[in-house]
C-alpha cells in the first residue's frame, strides 16, 4: 500500500503542486483567475511549451539542448529579415523552420559523428547562434510586419489564440510519436541504454541526430510565433529560455539520465512554469528576484529526479 502511495505521489505530485499554486494565486491576486489572464498565461506558455516538447525528445535520449534560446533568436532574425525583403509568408515560414532544423541537425552531427557530449556541443551552438543573430541584426531589432504575418502569434481560431492551438497540436503529435512509433520506442531505448540499442543492430546515431533536429525545428516554430506576436525580432530574443524549457521538462517527470519522461508530463510542467512566471509578475516580484526563484526551481526539480532515480 505504501509503495502505491509513493508511486501515486511520484506520478501525480506535479498535478498536486500545480493545483496548490493555482489556488494560492487565485486567492492572493485578484487578476489571476480571469479569463483574459488565463488565456494570456497559456499563450505565453505556448512559446516555450513547444520547445519543451522538442526538449523532451532530447532529454529522453539522455541528452540536453542548451542552444534552443539562441536558435530561436537566429530563426526569428532571419524570419524578420526575409519578411522585410518582401518574401511571401509561406516561404518565410518554411525558411524559419529550416534555420532551426539546420541548427539542430548541426548539433546532432557533432554529437554523433564527432562524439562530443551534447552539453558541450549545444553550449557551443548557443554561442554560435546568438553570434549569428547579432551579426545579422547588427544588434538592432527588426520590426513592423504585415497584418497577415501578425496573425500567427496574435490571431484566433474559434476563439482560441493560434499559438495555443499550435501548442496543443504539437503536444498531441509528440504524444502519438512517442507512444506509437519506432522513433518513440528508440528514443526511450537510447536513453535507457544506448549500447544495447546499437548492439541490437539499430542505427542509434540516426535517431539521436533526429531528436536534435526535432528540438531545433521546435525552436524555429517558437521563433515564428514570438516574432509575429511581438511584431519584432529582437537580437536577444529567446535568451535564457533554455532555463524555463529544461525546468518544464524535468518538473514534468523526465529524467536527465534519459529513458524516463512523457509529453503529458512536459505539458503540465510547461503550464506550471507559465503559472509561476505569471504569478510572480502579478504579485509584483522583481525580475531580479524571479531569476533566483527559477534557479531554485531547476535545482529542486533535478533533486526530485535524483530522489526518484535512487528508488530504482
Amino acid at each position: 500500500m505504501k509503495v502505491k502511495f509513493v508511486e501515486t505521489l511520484k506520478n501525480y505530485g506535479i498535478i498536486l503542486a500545480f493545483f496548490i499554486i493555482f489556488v494560492a494565486l487565485s486567492i492572493f491576486s485578484p487578476v489571476f483567475l480571469t479569463v483574459n489572464n488565463i488565456i494570456n498565461v497559456i499563450r505565453q506558455t505556448s512559446i516555450y511549451g513547444i520547445m519543451a516538447v522538442g526538449m523532451t525528445f532530447v532529454i529522453l535520449t539522455g541528452g540536453i539542448d542548451l542552444s534552443i534560446g539562441s536558435v530561436l533568436g537566429v530563426s526569428g532574425a532571419i524570419c524578420a529579415g526575409m519578411l522585410k525583403a518582401g518574401n511571401p509568408i509561406p516561404i518565410v515560414v518554411l525558411a524559419t523552420l529550416g534555420v532551426g532544423t539546420a541548427c539542430g541537425f548541426a548539433s546532432g552531427m557533432f554529437i554523433t559523428k564527432a562524439r562530443i557530449t551534447p552539453f558541450v556541443v549545444t553550449l557551443g551552438m548557443m554561442s554560435i547562434a546568438r553570434g549569428l543573430t547579432l551579426i545579422y541584426t547588427k544588434g538592432y531589432p527588426i520590426s513592423g510586419f504585415s497584418a497577415a504575418f501578425r496573425l500567427i502569434g496574435g490571431g484566433y481560431i474559434l476563439g482560441l489564440p493560434i499559438p495555443i492551438i499550435i501548442f496543443l497540436v504539437i503536444v498531441v503529435i509528440a504524444y502519438v510519436v512517442l507512444t506509437q512509433t519506432k522513433l518513440g520506442r528508440y528514443t526511450y531505448a537510447i536513453g535507457g541504454n544506448e549500447e544495447t540499442v546499437r548492439l541490437s543492430g539499430i542505427n542509434s546515431n540516426f535517431y539521436k541526430t533526429l531528436v536534435y533536429v526535432i528540438s531545433g525545428s521546435m525552436a524555429g516554430l517558437s521563433a515564428l510565433i514570438l516574432t509575429s506576436r511581438l511584431n519584432s525580432a529582437e537580437p536577444v530574443a529567446g535568451s535564457g529560455y533554455e532555463m524555463d524549457v529544461i525546468a518544464a521538462v524535468v518538473i514534468g517527470g523526465a529524467s536527465l539520465n534519459g529513458g524516463r519522461g512523457s509529453v503529458w508530463g512536459t505539458f503540465i510542467g510547461s503550464l506550471l512554469i507559465g503559472v509561476i512566471n505569471n504569478g510572480m509578475n502579478l504579485l509584483g516580484i522583481s525580475p531580479y528576484f524571479q531569476q533566483v526563484v527559477k534557479g531554485l526551481i531547476i535545482i529542486g526539480a533535478v533533486w526530485l529526479d535524483q530522489l526518484r532515480a535512487r528508488e530504482d
Partner: peptide, 21 residues
C-alpha cells in the same frame, strides 16, 4: 545488463527491439 538489455524498459520493448522495422 550493459549490452543486452535496456533495464528501464519493459519486457515487450526489449524483446521487440529488433523487429520494429
Amino acid at each position: 545488463k550493459h549490452q543486452g538489455l535496456v533495464l528501464g524498459l519493459s519486457v515487450q520493448d526489449n524483446a521487440t527491439m529488433t523487429i520494429l522495422d
